[in-house]
Nucleic acid binder design. Structure first.
Length: 897
RNA sequence: GGUCUUAUAGCUCAGCUGGUUUAGAGCACCUGCCUUACAAGCAGGGGGUCCUAGGUUCGAAUCCUAGUGGGACCACCA
């Protein structure tokens, strides 16, 4: 290690050490006698690329895993990827489309061939990117939600839950994504506020002549040359072809006259009844609601109670179906525009108003509005799962950081809805249900089984199907929701479904910490807790650390369209992985959004450079067998205490998952205490050798600091650890043990704080007077002064003599206070008496203000009577301290004058 | 509409169960310095009606109430 560059270059070392760790299998874990520490990665989309959210998330996981390893635990971080059915299928469909191939022209097998090709080609890039970040995953364990073990687990769980009666098939109003052409769960729909229009349509009364105004107060009648009509306000005029009733509130005085009549749907000319239901909001619009049972959840409910017909006017792709009779084959949004024009022309549009409403979009496919649609799907009953998943979080067995998410979780579970788990997709786990042949129009019959053979056996037991053959069974075309595989992740990674009670699941489960974003608390976290209790009877993880969302520095979400999302790999190139990791962590308290600013990575890089240069200094020293100077001896002793104190602080931060605070504590320990103070205290004069004892103590401290830093900055710490001294072939800082939090002496640390204050004061005088550090000072003190660090003061402040004042310095000294100690430095002619007096007078002014506050408190009888005695005592001490300081200062001023 | 959360220095945040000198950190800013580890640095420095108004208390940045302004989630009006 000769001639180290004065700038640290991460690129030189990062890939080297990552390869070293891999080659030596340092990331691998096998069950053994040690305490396990397990993290399962939130599996990223298999064909995705690394974004800033991943960077944050995985940096935190790596910090936790590396620290656990260095605490002597058997740390196991299991990586893997998710098949992300909707997103991946969409990508494959697009890719095929660009080649002129339509999905519907392919068989399921052919399509899956393409999907697997795509996955093989793009899959796992993201895991390679994580390696650049330094992620210490056990890569041999890399799993995929659609690999054999995980797939088998998913199907087994489906069959099991079906057999338990928790999975059922039902005709429900579900959310339909017309682009992906699949249903979505309620959680997968996100609502966005939109500026839209409210159309007021005329529904003429069929038998206008029979209308009799009631004459009651508040009644509103609409009439024109064509007769009486009702006005219905709607944001979706294109759905009128599906209207099968108009609904009013029976208590609504405006619309009493409509009771019992029939109205005519505009343009469609279908005659529909006016029904009455208290569901209708009297205040909204005109109080008349068009009822379209096939395309709205609430209308569906109305349709059910009032026995209305449902007319499905949409095709799966969002175009108008034959059943509508009008606009057949046109897109729903085109029709909305067109129908408004046609209604207007026909005189059936009373008015149009601007209106803000919320429109649901697919979470995976945010440019497509979701369409409520009635269809038959597979559902999982959730009440049972809510019942088993809520108590452990409420009673704190399973902890959330930050804890505010407990109420979010509770709220969701207490209002749980059944989970629609089927998707009309091919890329995913195909539902293991087999339909039996039935007569036209008869109720469907099916069996659920893991294999065709088992399905056949089950089918044969059904009356009338004794002679059924395998080729008569038709397997359900649908696949399962991606989250139906992810919810098993902590269990399935250790093969706990296929191979219950195996050695690995017994050892690694429950896992320790889960690190993820709050946006998937329902999708994933809650459901993993459910599956964990259902299949292992235990929580899947002990703690959940919710990260914030990564935003740009002005608080906007990072997005491709805004172009405000930096490329993580580019950042790593520029600042080094360690620098970027630190940049991420500097501003990432749990649960708070992080406002990402490149400047933080720069700060990280600068810190790396600081460490690097401290190392250059220490390694550049020539060691000689000589006596240890007193200053060094005191410094070495002090730093041990300071170190122990900070270690305790760091441990405390980690216990509370305050990781950025832990980093800040190490940062300050290294930069301020170690580099700025300790190294200056022990540093020999230029080109002078250092004594062995100090040198070795310093190297020891350096190594300890590197260990404390390692979880945050794995690369530079390994590089320097290897270079501090000769290491054995397979030595690594990764597997070294972190120091314990040993006792420390507060008194020693406080004494050094005073020493630092004195040194700073003297340096200040030099700076103000422009006196060179080479010119030695004499220093006099007054007050309770502890002289144990005199050697350090002499060295760092260049002081030649330290003595108690003899009171006759006259006006020739600069003075300052450190605590209650007064320090004077004789300066001869250099003293500007007026300036010194002015300074002291300002100090007195401050102290008097302070003293007044304290005295006010102490003169308050109620305070003295009610406050705790130690508090009163403290105030008295404050008072006497302030008084003695003021006295000293006044005395000084008098002398100077 | 409901639930939760938050308001402290230019920025990002600490400040735990009220009392540790009339509030701290990091960054940014200002002023000196290219001092032989480090200018990606060193030495100094300035900067805050602790959102507003009430209340509880001997004492409030800290607890309570209301208001205002952020944020998140859930529900939803056709």
């Amino acid at each position: 290690m000769e001639e180290l560059a004065s700038k640290y270059n991460p690129a030189d070392v990062e890939s080297k050490w990552y390869q070293y760790w891999l080659d030596n299998g340092f990331f691998k874990s096998k069950p053994d006698g040690r305490e396990p520490y397990t993290i399962v990665i939130p599996p990223p989309n298999v064909t995705g690329v690394l974004h800033m959210g991943h960077m944050l998330n995985n940096t935190i996981q790596d910090i936790l895993v590396r620290r656990a390893r260095m605490l002597g635990k058997n740390a196991c971080w299991v990586p893997g990827t998710d098949h992300a059915s909707i997103a991946t299928e969409a990508k494959v469909v697009n890719k095929l489309a660009s080649e002129g191939i339509k999905k519907k022209d392919l068989t399921r097998e052919q399509f899956l061939e393409h999907a697997w090709d795509w996955t093989r080609k793009h899959g796992g890039i993201i895991l390679e990117q994580l390696k650049k970040l330094g992620a210490s995953c056990d890569w041999d364990r890399t799993a995929f939600t659609m690999d054999d073990k995980r797939s088998e687990s998913v199907l087994k769980v489906f069959v099991d839950l079906y057999d338990k009666g928790l999975i059922y098939r039902g005709l429900r109003m579900v959310n339909w994504d017309p682009k992906a052409q699949t249903v979505l769960s309620t959680e997968e729909v996100i609502y966005r506020e939109e500026k839209s229009k409210l159309f007021y349509l005329k529904y003429y009364v069929q038998d206008s002549a029979s209308v009799k105004p009631t004459g009651e107060e508040g009644e509103i009648l609409h009439k024109d040359e064509k007769g009486y009509y009702a006005v219905v306000a709607t944001t979706r005029p294109e759905t009128i072809m599906g209207d099968t009733a108009m609904c009013i509130n029976p208590k609504d005085p405006k619309n009493q006259w409509l009771k019992g009549h029939k109205v005519i749907v505009p343009l469609v000319n279908r005659v529909i009844p006016v029904i009455e239901d208290r569901y209708v909001d009297v205040e909204f619009g005109t109080g008349c609601l068009k009822v379209t049972p096939a395309h709205d959840v609430n209308d569906y409910a109305l349709g059910k109670t009032h026995g209305l017909e449902t007319i499905d006017i949409f095709n799966p792709d969002g175009t108008i179906s034959d059943a509508a009779g009008l606009y057949v084959g046109q897109d729903r949004f085109e029709v909305r525009k067109q129908i408004a024009i046609d209604l207007e022309k026909a005189g059936l549009l009373e008015k149009v108003e601007d209106y803000d409403n919320k429109v649901g979009y697919s979470e995976r496919n945010q440019d497509t509005a979701v369409e409520p649609r009635l269809c038959k799907q597979w559902f999982l009953s959730m009440q049972h799962f809510a019942d088993i998943a809520l108590p452990p979080v409420l009673n704190g067995e399973l902890k959330f950081y930050p804890s505010k998410y407990v109420s979010t979780y509770k709220n969701w579970l207490e209002n749980i809805q059944d989970w629609c788990i089927s998707r009309q997709l091919w890329w995913g786990h195909r539902i293991p249900a087999y339909f039996l042949p039935t007569a036209e129009g008869a109720e469907e019959k099916f069996v659920v089984a893991l294999t065709v053979e088992e399905a056949l056996a089950k089918a044969k037991k059904i009356a009338g199907y004794e002679n059924i053959t395998a080729d008569q069974l038709v397997r359900d075309e649908d696949a399962l929701d991606t989250w139906f595989s992810s919810w098993l992740w902590p269990v399935s990674l250790f093969d706990g479904i296929n191979n219950p009670g195996n050695e690995e699941i017994k050892y690694y489960y429950p896992t320790s910490d889960l690190v993820t974003g709050p946006d998937i608390i329902f999708f994933w976290v809650a459901r993993m807790i459910m599956a964990g209790y259902e299949y292992e009877g235990k929580m899947p993880f002990k703690n959940v650390y919710f990260t914030g969302i990564v935003r740009d520095k002005i608080g906007r979400k990072m997005s491709k369209s805004l172009g405000n999302s930096p490329d993580p790999l580019d950042l790593i190139d520029r600042f080094g992985a360690d620098g970027v990791r630190m940049g991420m962590m500097l501003s990432a308290p749990a649960g708070n959004d992080i406002l990402f600013d490149e400047a933080l990575c720069e700060q990280g890089r600068n810190f790396n450079n600081k460490i690097w240069n401290a190392f250059r200094l220490v390694k550049g020293w020539e060691v000689k067998d000589m006596e240890q100077p007193e200053s060094a001896q005191k410094a070495v002793k002090w730093f041990q205490h300071q170190l122990n104190k900070t270690i305790a602080e760091i441990n405390d931060c980690f216990d509370k998952y305050r990781i950025s605070d832990a980093l800040m504590a190490v940062y300050k320990l290294f930069w301020d205490e170690f580099s700025s103070w300790y190294l200056e205290m022990v540093k020999p004069a230029y080109q002078q050798p250092i004594d062995k004892a100090t040198y070795e103590a310093t190297l020891g401290y350096f190594e300890t600091l590197l260990k404390l830093l390692h979880p945050f900055m794995p690369f530079i710490t390994e590089e320097l650890y290897q270079n501090i001294k000769e290491r054995d072939a397979k030595d690594t800082i990764m597997l070294s043990l972190l120091p314990n939090a040993e006792d420390f002496c507060e008194k020693n640390i406080n004494r050094m704080e005073i020493t630092k204050g004195i040194i700073a004061g003297i340096r200040n005088i030099r700076a103000n007077k422009g006196i060179s550090p080479r010119e030695a000072f004499e220093m006099f003190y007054k007050g309770e002064f502890d002289d144990k660090n005199n050697a350090i003061i002499e060295k760092l402040a260049n002081v030649s003599k330290i003595a108690e004042t003899t009171d006759d310095l006259g006006g020739a000294a600069a003075t300052f206070m450190v605590g209650t100690i007064e320090i004077s430095v004789p300066l001869g002619n250099n003293v500007n008496v007026e300036e010194e007096i002015k300074k002291m007078e300002e100090e007195i002014k401050y102290l008097e203000g302070f003293l007044a506050g304290v005295e006010k408190k102490l003169s308050n009888e109620k305070f003295v009577a009610n406050a705790k005695p130690e508090i009163v005592e403290k105030e008295r001490k404050k008072k006497s301290d302030a008084e003695s300081k003021i006295a000293t200062l006044k005395e000084n001023i008098a002398k100077m004058k």
